[in-house]
């Protein structure tokens, strides 16, 4: 199960992620990402990867199921 994690300290609420992957990322009233589901469906993974790469504060991270150490 691939999950999407937010580093809440790094996140500035720029909102790019929600524009690039609107299928799973919404924004709250203050502009911070709300991750819509626990796991990222594989069909939207390309969008999500783009969102992760585009985050200006590097606050988004994809956690692959077999590599939990990627959580840093």
């Amino acid at each position: 199960m691939t999950t999407l994690r937010v580093d809440w300290i790094a996140c500035d609420g720029r909102g790019l992620c929600a524009e690039l992957a609107p299928e799973v990322i919404h924004v709250d009233p203050w502009g911070y990402p709300v991750i819509a589901s626990d796991s990222v469906p594989s069909r939207v993974l390309p969008h999500v990867r783009r969102a992760v790469a585009a985050c200006p504060t590097l606050a988004l991270r994809l956690v692959e199921p077999d590599r939990p150490s990627e959580r840093r």
């Binding site: 300290i9 709250d28 009233p29 203050w30």
Partner: peptide
Amino acid sequence: GQCGPCTNG
């Protein structure tokens, strides 16, 4: 004041 949802919420 580090995390948006806490700071605002």
